[in-house]
C-alpha cells in the first residue's frame, strides 16, 4: 500500500512537470496553430538562468532563493519566448509548416550555443536543504519535493484559468482559440494576444525548467528532450488549446507512466504511446478538446 501511495504521488509530481511544459504548448497551438519545437529550449533557458541566479547572484540556498530562482528563470524564459515570437514567428504568418520548421532550427541553435558554452555535463542546481526530506503518509515516505511540483502546477493552473477567464487579454485569447479571424475582424489586436501567449508559455516552461533541474539533480542542455515529447503527447491527449485538458492528461500520464515503470522498467513510455493511439482512434480531438468547425 505504501509503495502504491509513493508511486502515485511521484507520478502526480511528474505529471505536474509535464503540465508546466504542456500548458504553453497547448495555448500556443490552440491560438496560433504553431507546433513549437522551441518550447524545449524555453525550458532549458529557464533552467540555465535559474542556475545562474542561484549560484552567481545569491550564494545561499533556502526556500526564498529557490522561489526567486524559479521566478527569475521563468521571466527570462518568457522574455526569450517573446523575442522568438516577435523576431521569427510573426514573419512566417499563417505558414504553419514553416513555423514548425523554424522552431526546430531555433531549438538546434539554442542547444548548440548552450552546449558550446557550458558543455553537456549535468551542473548541480542548489536546492533548499529540506528538499531531501520525506513526508510520511501512513507508512509511505514520500520525498517532499514532489509536493512542491504539484503545488506550483496547481498555482499556475489556477492563475492561468483566472487570467483566461477574468481578464480582458484572457478573453481575447479564449476568443482567438475559438475563432481567430472573427476576433481580428472585430478590430481587436490579436497580435498582442499572440505575444502574451508566448510569454506565458515561456514563463511556465522556464519555471518548469528550474523544477525539472531540481528533479533530475542538475542542469544540462539535454534535459528538455523527453519533456518536450511528453508535452506534445499531453497536448494531444488533453485536447489542443485546452489548459484544463492538459492538466488532466498530464496527471493521468504521469501516474500511469510511474505505475507501469514500477511494474517493468521502460514499460511506462510504451503504455503512454498506446494510450495516445487509443485516444486518437476513439476521440481524435482529445479528452477536453473541442471539434473545430
Amino acid at each position: 500500500m505504501d509503495t502504491f501511495m509513493l508511486i502515485g504521488i511521484t507520478g502526480i509530481g511528474l505529471g505536474a512537470l509535464y503540465f508546466l511544459v504542456a500548458s504553453g504548448l497547448s495555448l500556443i497551438y490552440g491560438l496560433m496553430g504553431v507546433l513549437n519545437f522551441a518550447h524545449g529550449s524555453f525550458l532549458t533557458v529557464g533552467a540555465f538562468v535559474g542556475l545562474w541566479f542561484s549560484t552567481q547572484v545569491v550564494h545561499v540556498s533556502n526556500t526564498w532563493t529557490f522561489i526567486a530562482a524559479m521566478i527569475v528563470g521563468g521571466l527570462a524564459s518568457g522574455l526569450f519566448a517573446l523575442i522568438v515570437e516577435r523576431v521569427v514567428i510573426t514573419r512566417l504568418y499563417e505558414r504553419h509548416i514553416d513555423q514548425a520548421l523554424v522552431t526546430v532550427g531555433i531549438s538546434l541553435v539554442v542547444g548548440a550555443v548552450l552546449a558550446g558554452w557550458f558543455g553537456n555535463d549535468l551542473r548541480l542546481l542548489p536546492t533548499p536543504p529540506w528538499f531531501i526530506n520525506t513526508v510520511s503518509i501512513g507508512s509511505a515516505h514520500i520525498p517532499v519535493d514532489r509536493f512542491l511540483y504539484i503545488a506550483v502546477a496547481l498555482i499556475l493552473l489556477i492563475a492561468n484559468t483566472a487570467l483566461l477567464r477574468y481578464s480582458r487579454i484572457g478573453l481575447v485569447i479564449r476568443a482567438g482559440v475559438e475563432n481567430r479571424q472573427m476576433v481580428a475582424a472585430l478590430g481587436i489586436n490579436v497580435r498582442l494576444a499572440f505575444s502574451a501567449v508566448f510569454f506565458l508559455g515561456g514563463f511556465a516552461a522556464g519555471i518548469g525548467g528550474v523544477l525539472v533541474s531540481a528533479y533530475s539533480n542538475g542542469v544540462s542542455p539535454l534535459i528538455a528532450g523527453t519533456y518536450l515529447i511528453y508535452g506534445f503527447i499531453v497536448v494531444v491527449i488533453g485536447g489542443m488549446g485546452s489548459v484544463p485538458g492538459s492538466f488532466l492528461a498530464a496527471m493521468v500520464i504521469g501516474v500511469i507512466k510511474q505505475y507501469a515503470n514500477y511494474y517493468s522498467p521502460g514499460l511506462g513510455d510504451f503504455v503512454v504511446v498506446f494510450l495516445l493511439a487509443g485516444v486518437l482512434l476513439l476521440r481524435p480531438q482529445g479528452l477536453l478538446g473541442k471539434v473545430k468547425p
Binding site: 520548421l101 532550427g105 541553435v109 542547444g111 548548440a112 552546449a115
Partner: peptide
C-alpha cells in the same frame, strides 16, 4: 574567445542558423 568558439564548435549551431535562414528567406 569561448563565447564565440564554443557554439562554433557545435555543428548544430552552423547548420541550425543556415536552416533558419533558408526557411525564412530562401524556401
Amino acid at each position: 574567445p569561448k563565447i564565440i568558439s564554443g557554439p562554433l564548435s557545435e555543428p548544430a549551431f552552423t547548420l541550425g542558423l543556415l536552416f533558419i535562414f533558408v526557411v525564412m528567406f530562401a524556401p
